[in-house]
Computed example of a mutant assay.
Amino acid sequence: MLQLKGFACGYGEFTAVDNLDLTVEAGSVFALMGPNGAGKSSTIMSIAGHVQVSQGSVLFDGEDITHLPARQRVHMGIAVAPEGRRLFPDLTTVENLTIGGYSRPKEEEKGNRERVFDLFPRLAERADQFAGKMSGGEQQMLAIGRALMAKPRLLMIDEVSLGLMPKVIDMCYSALDSLRSEGITLLFVEQNTARALEVAEDVCVLESGKTVWKGSAADAKANPKLLDAFLGLAETTTDGN
């Protein structure tokens, strides 16, 4: 579904990611991992059309979208829940969801909203609450729900669990399982290495904008050097905890 070929992106003269080759199969779950500053968020936001591609190409369903504006990519089926959520704090849950569905026909809005509420019942309870008054976990659910209002075929989530309580993390990952069962392709960034490797099928590890490892999640879990050097899991893996 998604291919990056010789991909580079950045901000002005600064290159955040360089010479990245990536393939995400339709219906799969793909984790983009690595330390802070590795270029993960820049990659996600560039695929969404918010960060300039300086080299290479981005293909979606075989079509070159490298230079398409973000709004066109949403219409094609690409949506993102960005790092930091970036909600409209002075708008309610329902109003934020409505904005997320701007690319869809108006008659779909109620059904799409109910789908989000089924996925995150907490949001139904907070339907009329201002986003800025919600907890961090509720805001994360709302950010994912807002992206889902566009009915994407490719959903990208930047930092699924960052700063969230374990119970809320469980809710978010339960939602990802449901979305995967619906056939939605998922590309996500995650600092919680153990959780990411549980749900992902394929992994790409970045460091300082460069690819340092690509492969299956199963191979990543079986690679102590990778876990130790880039993902910080070797100690817990060898202990069996």
Rank of each mutant, 00 (worst) to 15 (best):
E25D: 14
D61W: 12
L164G: 08
A38S: 09
F120E: 02
L226T: 00
A38L: 07
G215I: 05
I44V: 13
G37D: 06
R122Q: 12
T66V: 09
Y173L: 05
R113F: 08
M149C: 10
A147S: 13
T193L: 04
L4W: 01
F7T: 06
A16V: 02
K225P: 00
D170M: 04
S103M: 05
F117P: 08
V80Q: 13
F130V: 05
M156L: 14
K110T: 15
A200H: 00
V53F: 13
S41V: 01
M165R: 14
V51N: 02
A175M: 10
A143F: 11
S174H: 14
A81W: 11
I78S: 06
V160F: 04
G49S: 12
E138L: 08
V17G: 03
G27D: 01
V94G: 02
G111H: 15
P89G: 11
L187C: 08
A220I: 04
S178V: 14
M156E: 10
N192T: 00
V168E: 13
F130S: 13
S57C: 04
K106I: 08
L227F: 01
R73E: 11
R122I: 15
M134Y: 10
F88V: 05
V189D: 03
T185Y: 03
A175T: 07
G183A: 08
G132V: 10
V199H: 06
G84F: 04
L148F: 03
G84W: 01
Q55D: 15
G6Y: 08
L233D: 00
K225N: 10
L2K: 10
T43W: 05
V53Y: 13
I78E: 09
E13H: 14
V160C: 10
V53I: 15
T193N: 02
C9F: 01
R115E: 14
R113Y: 06
S174G: 15
P224A: 00
T15Y: 06
N192L: 06
C172V: 15
A220Q: 04
T15N: 02
A131R: 10
E109Y: 15
S41Y: 12
L87E: 07
I47N: 05
P121F: 12
E138P: 10
E207G: 09
L155Y: 02
R85V: 06
I169H: 02
M134T: 05
I78R: 09
S103Q: 12
K110D: 13
E114G: 12
H75I: 13
P105S: 02
A200M: 02
L148P: 06
G77Q: 12
Q129I: 08
S54W: 13
L91M: 15
S28N: 07
E190Q: 04
D64C: 13
G84P: 11
A143Q: 08
V189I: 11
M149Q: 13
Q3M: 12
S46F: 06
R153D: 13
N19I: 07
L197M: 00
G240P: 01
W213R: 05
D170L: 04
D18S: 15
T237C: 09
L179W: 04
L97A: 07
T193H: 02
S28L: 05
M156K: 05
A222I: 01
V24T: 05
S46N: 08
S42P: 01
V116G: 07
P89D: 12
Q139F: 12
E138T: 07
D18L: 14
L206E: 03
F188I: 08
M141T: 04
L233K: 00
D228W: 01
